[in-house]
């Protein structure tokens, strides 16, 4: 199977301190992969590296069947200003940007698509509501609707289930399963290992360095988790040893 993209000696970080080191892995097209690891393991950083928001300190992300323009990205506790005066429908319609750009018109067909998507995440009736009035779960559903409208081949989710209610969780997992069936490549940073075991066939465990990558049951072992914690603690205690390979 051809890879959607691969990490080739990828080193990412801030202020020349690497948060992800020399990562080598291939993400298969159409795979559904969870990224797990202790706090500060570089999980979010890795997603930022894939989107291109963060430039690599070394190595690169090499795109195979996918490319950057086909990425949909949901950041952690999204940076969206929740008090911003914008309605649910307008926020979801932002997902059309790649089709319509700064000047294109939102025509009838696109409007219908936006409405259908809002229905698919169970927010019908809230279209005109300003986002300031939404609950955490409703906001996350809105952002998932925007991702759906983007029709992205590659979907990156950074802790998508943090602070959502159980009803919303079911909806969101359904959407992720649907993406998987449609052979989209999905990468999600997650903390809850039960969710990972139940819904994610593949797992990539990170502790700045790659710990393990493969089928979830083989990766999520007690031994790997112990190793990951140790690697992260070692890094935190002696940060200078982490600068290996950085300029």
């Amino acid at each position: 199977m051809s890879p959607a993209f691969s990490f080739q000696g990828l080193t990412l970080g801030y202020d020349r301190t690497p948060a992800v080191r020399d990562l080598r892995a291939e993400i298969a097209e159409g795979s559904l992969t969870a990224i797990v690891g202790p706090n500060g393991a570089g999980k979010s950083t890795l997603l930022k590296g894939v989107t291109g928001i963060l430039k690599p300190l070394g190595g690169r992300v090499c795109f195979g069947s996918a490319d950057r323009s086909g990425i949909g990205y949901l950041p952690q506790h999204s940076e969206i200003d929740r008090s911003f005066p914008i309605s649910v429908v307008d926020l979801v319609a932002m997902g059309l940007w790649r089709e319509i750009g700064p000047f294109g018109r939102v025509d009838g067909a696109r409007r219908a698509r936006v409405a259908e998507t809002i229905a698919a995440v169970g927010l019908t009736g809230l279209e005109a509501r300003p986002i300031a009035t939404l609950s955490g779960g409703q906001m996350q559903r809105t952002l998932f609707a925007r991702l759906l409208v983007q029709d992205a081949k590659v979907v990156l989710l950074d802790e998508p289930f943090a602070a959502v209610d159980s009803g919303t969780l079911v909806y969101l997992l359904k959407i992720i399963d649907r993406w998987h069936v449609e052979r989209r490549t999905v990468l999600a940073v997650l903390h809850d290992h039960d969710t990972v075991r139940a819904h994610f066939p593949d797992t990539l465990m990170l502790a700045r360095d790659l710990v393990a990558h493969g089928p979830t049951p083989e990766v999520l072992t007690a031994e790997n988790q112990f190793r990951a914690r140790q690697m992260c603690e070692a890094c935190a205690e002696t940060p200078h040893t982490c600068i290996r390979g950085a300029a």
Binding site: I53, I71, P75, E79, I80, D81, M94, P102, F103
Partner: peptide
């Protein structure tokens, strides 16, 4: 002319950065 990118840049700058070079 810039209304749409301006709104996006205010509401969700990270999103604009991932979908556009504007």
């Amino acid at each position: 002319l810039l209304f749409r990118p301006l709104v996006l840049e205010c509401a969700d700058p990270q999103f604009l950065r991932t979908v556009s070079g504007l």
